[in-house]
Design a protein around this nucleic acid. Structure first.
Lengths: 137, 137
DNA sequence: AAGTTGATGCAACCGAGTTGCAAAGTTATT
DNA sequence: AATAACTTTGCAACTCGGTTGCATCAACTT
């Protein structure tokens, strides 16, 4: 009998080890994107490098995506099941300057941009900074 | 008789030292945004920290703006004279994955975003990745 | 000229991210 | 079941961009 997380890993062609299932579990419990350092804190005893490589593997296989919100530490969040991380899959991210949380605004697609001639588009990173609805104004 | 760069610094309330005028000169010669390390290379003999603090001062006084293009090193570029770095002043940045140059697309304003209710907006960082018009496709 | 303020330069530190390598675990082969 | 081949994990140590402390130097004030 396979667990959900096991299946989830396998559909992304990631060999489901105990460690990876645990990391996936933690990731799926988050309401905001999480940094490597934050992730490390969620475990009693876990090597930073292992977590680092786990995240890399997850990202390569498009199970998660990374967000560079400009704070100096990259955050990670689960992709939607169908996500291929193509420009049309991308959504806006929001960094709250009060609580420092980084949220995926999955309902807000990154607007398309008319680039100058002979520029080709591969990817877009759009991070909005401000105060989120949970923080006092 | 005051030089142009001297006047430029003074309008932004920056005391015009020799060093600062030199840095401003280099910045104004760039066609793409420049990192601290790149800037250091432009000088025979200049301390990284001095350049670092010069850039900080310039940025605080809105003479330049910084761009976090996700490469791991922050780039800097001159602001327009009228720029106050408010959301409506912001433009899109473009990182070429071939030549690694980061360009200000000053003609392309950052599109406005309808945030969820009770989210307030302070700033937006939008970096488009792809291949620029100078690089072979 | 002495005193105050700000700018500069050197050394050293910091933290996020990353690599090398050996040990442990897993899978395949006979 | 034993061996071999490969993958994952954990520790140590390193890199690199950014940053701070502090002493020195320059400019400006009284």
């Amino acid at each position: 009998m396979k667990s959900d997380s096991e299946k989830q890993l396998e559909t992304r062609n990631i060999k489901p080890t105990a460690m990876r299932e645990l990391v996936l579990k933690v990731l799926s419990e988050q309401t905001a994107a999480i940094s490597l350092a934050d992730l490390e804190q969620k475990f009693e005893k876990a090597d930073k490098v292992t977590l680092y490589r786990t995240l890399k593997t997850f990202e390569e296989n498009k199970l998660i995506h990374s967000i560079d919100d400009g704070t100096g530490s990259v955050k990670y969040a689960l992709c939607k099941e169908t996500c291929q991380c193509h420009p049309e899959d991308l959504h806006v991210h929001f960094l709250c300057t009060k609580c420092k949380q980084t949220y995926c605004l999955t309902d807000i697609p990154v607007p398309s941009i008319n680039l100058p001639t002979h520029f080709t588009l591969e990817n877009i990173n759009m991070v909005v900074k401000g105060v989120c609805s949970n923080c006092p104004k």
